[in-house]
Design a protein around this nucleic acid. Structure first.
Lengths: 213, 213
DNA sequence: GACGCCATCGGGGACGACCCTGGTTGATCC
DNA sequence: GGATCAACCAGGGTCGTCCCCGATGGCGTC
């Protein structure tokens, strides 16, 4: 343990990797740098760095492929995405895959060093504004609102739909809404026909998809 | 527009609200402070502050109830959770409900002012380490890894479990793994017995719970 | 070699899921 | 008054689910 953070750099542009090394190599230990997904997975497993600076856009799968390749093991290696892109999809995708931060390449030397140290300490680091993408995706997700498909169902059908999707048997649904099993069958049939589904499993999937549970 | 950030304080302890006002009232505009959920929703809608400092633990629903009550409208009002708790569930819950940051009450005056300004600017602010909870929850995480329950199943049983949980019929599973329907029945029976479940719906729920799909 | 575990099958049975063809009632609309 | 539709119910059938009882062969352990 040198006391200095051990950093690994992944970027398909050798010039950029040189730049990073020149800029921060005096403040952290650059333990390796590569330009391809396959090399990255092997080398990161071998060197076990503290922090991986990860370019999001790479040939053969990009940064996400590397994160997924490293998914098991390496609990002490944090990945910090470093990209020219500030698109919400890029940010969310790479965070979902396991990155602990996301900063754009417009960052200054001091900000990058601070980001590396904070990620290493367990914090999450984002360029201002990008964090909002992640929180938006995490919090609201699809408000779904009034689903036109759902409006085509009668009240009773929607009621039965919800219960069936939760895994209740016809008999249990019947007891709960105080009608006969045959009536439940009728309602379920209507629901399946109207939604063009073929069985209750698809119905469960349909309902989960729309967060009706 | 005064140029100063307009802040609203929600906390059920009047002493704490006084403390906040005394500490940062000279640097930001405190446009209101209340101690209950209902008052908060009404007053925040009326004053439209830039940032709401929100206590997580309140009678009658807590900070989440307020966030849900404010869910519509007020796109320019950001909520910053301010709590004594550093429990992952609290953090994730309030962020999922729409808060843009979460800091603990051990924060210093300067850190709080910085957090308020950053949240107002659209950034997300977390006490170090708490951000990790959110990213873990978001990344789908739950490393689950070696589930002791899962280890008690044989390879073939786990294989069948996954397919059944996805909604395939016995016949479809049989075709997919090239065995007879009877063999699939046997495996499913073993799985249900070992996991102490009673039907495939519970099995689906069990699997989703563990993110095995 | 006996024993246990796994994977592979089978018969038979009880029950649930799903479909089809019917039927009644009551409310609403024209 | 006729047409339409939601909601309710029944009979009867096919197929899926889940259980019981078995059986065989392979493989590793003591």
């Amino acid at each position: 343990m040198t006391g200095r953070v051990r950093v690994f750099v992944v970027d398909d542009h050798a010039l950029f990797r040189s730049g990073v090394k020149a800029e921060i190599g005096d403040a952290v230990d650059i333990v390796g740098d590569v330009g391809t997904v396959d090399e990255a997975i092997l080398a990161i497993r071998a060197t076990k760095p503290d922090v991986v600076l990860l370019d999001v856009h790479l040939p053969n799968g990009g940064g996400r492929a590397i994160l997924e390749g490293l998914a098991d093991g390496l609990p002490n290696t944090k990945c910090l995405a470093l990209s020219v892109s500030d698109a919400a999809d890029d940010v969310i995708g790479v965070i979902r895959a396991g990155a602990r931060g996301y900063v754009t390449k417009t960052i200054t030397r001091e900000e990058l060093l601070d980001a590396i140290r904070r990620v290493h300490a367990g914090d999450a680091v984002f360029s201002p504004r990008l964090a909002g993408f992640v929180l938006d995706a995490f919090a609201g997700s699809a408000p779904l609102a009034s689903d036109p498909e759902m409006d085509r169902l009668t009240h009773r059908e929607q009621e039965v739909l919800r219960l069936i999707a939760r895994g209740y048997t016809y008999k249990e649904v019947a007891a709960r809404i105080h009608v006969s099993v045959k009536t439940v069958e009728t309602h379920v049939s209507s629901v399946l026909r109207k939604l063009q589904l073929s069985n209750r499993h698809e119905l469960t999937a349909w309902a989960t998809d729309r967060r009706l549970l």
